[in-house]
Simulated scan of single mutants.
Amino acid sequence: MITRPYVVGNWKMNGTRSMLAEARAIDRAAERLIKVEVALAPPATLVHACRKEATLIGIGAQDCHPADGGAHTGDISAAMLKDAGAGFIIVGHSERRADHGESDALVKRKAEAALAAGMTVIVCVGETAAERDAGKAQAIVSKQLEGSLPASDSPAEQITVAYEPVWAIGTGNTATPADVGAMHGHIRAELERIYGEGGAQVRILYGGSVKPDNAAELLAVENVGGALVGGASLTAESFLGIIVAAASDPDAE
């Protein structure tokens, strides 16, 4: 079982070159916090620059096109992102699913494209408030996992799942530790069903209004292998508060 926490900052559609100073500060601090694997996913325009400025942490991308190349104006392939310096790709974020109508099948193709390009992948899943209120949260997440994860013969150690309840993303609302524990336990069981023994090696991140003041409590929950952080990753000060909380987890190696 992987116990080193994985804390990933998703800058979303934020950031110009002026934010490279934040990436450098996070990188310098990560040198001291070796018990945590730290990564940033800046906008595609900053992937190359972040890779040059931050050499100790992981640098990834927020999305990719499933094709290797071709007539897809405005899109970026996994191979292009790798060439720019990305080592991982986030796919299936709820904002992509909602804003661009991405289906589970498309998310799966993107995930498999990232793996084929030699990168790791973070596959996002999560239910809406209406789905949770209707008692369908676990069923929705199971459906997303079944349809979005790379094929069962894929290398499980290169796959991370991020559970991000849609109702908690950018809202200030955070799932309770009990809710997080229940869903992460459910996801773990699904991963072991899909990947067999390899399912135990897939890290499961929690995302959804993670902040320095609630990170320690959330990261202490069983089957929580780290965090996918949005707004709180935009400054080194707030993001490092979360990384320090992860490094303080007694289960972290």
Results as ranks from 00 to 15, higher is better:
169 I>R: 00
245 A>L: 06
75 D>C: 11
226 G>M: 07
122 I>K: 06
87 G>M: 02
193 R>C: 11
72 H>E: 10
180 V>K: 03
3 T>F: 11
58 G>N: 09
171 T>P: 07
13 M>N: 12
29 A>F: 08
178 A>F: 08
22 E>D: 11
47 V>L: 02
153 D>W: 06
18 S>Q: 14
103 S>Q: 13
239 F>H: 04
102 E>G: 09
119 M>E: 08
213 D>C: 10
222 E>V: 06
182 A>K: 07
116 A>N: 14
118 G>E: 13
133 D>F: 11
53 E>Q: 09
96 R>G: 05
56 L>Q: 14
13 M>S: 12
113 A>F: 08
22 E>F: 03
249 D>W: 12
178 A>Y: 10
141 V>W: 06
158 Q>W: 07
242 I>W: 05
56 L>A: 15
16 T>L: 11
241 G>I: 05
71 A>P: 15
104 D>S: 08
205 L>E: 11
165 P>T: 00
30 A>D: 01
160 T>M: 01
243 I>N: 02
62 Q>C: 00
94 S>L: 05
130 A>R: 14
212 P>I: 04
106 L>I: 13
253 E>S: 13
171 T>G: 02
34 I>L: 10
240 L>G: 05
146 E>Y: 09
202 V>S: 06
55 T>I: 10
12 K>C: 03
50 C>Y: 01
90 I>R: 03
129 A>K: 14
210 V>W: 02
252 A>L: 04
64 C>S: 13
250 P>N: 12
19 M>N: 12
88 F>D: 07
181 G>E: 05
24 R>W: 01
33 L>T: 06
241 G>K: 00
84 A>T: 04
252 A>H: 03
109 R>A: 15
145 L>D: 01
144 Q>C: 10
100 H>M: 15
60 G>C: 08
117 A>I: 09
174 T>C: 11
113 A>I: 08
33 L>M: 13
190 E>Q: 15
121 V>L: 04
61 A>D: 10
1 M>Q: 14
26 I>G: 05
10 N>R: 00
125 V>Q: 08
135 G>D: 10
207 G>W: 04
215 A>M: 07
242 I>E: 05
26 I>K: 00
215 A>S: 07
114 A>R: 03
236 A>T: 02
132 R>I: 09
51 R>L: 02
216 A>T: 04
20 L>Q: 00
115 L>W: 08
251 D>C: 09
104 D>R: 06
213 D>Q: 14
46 L>G: 04
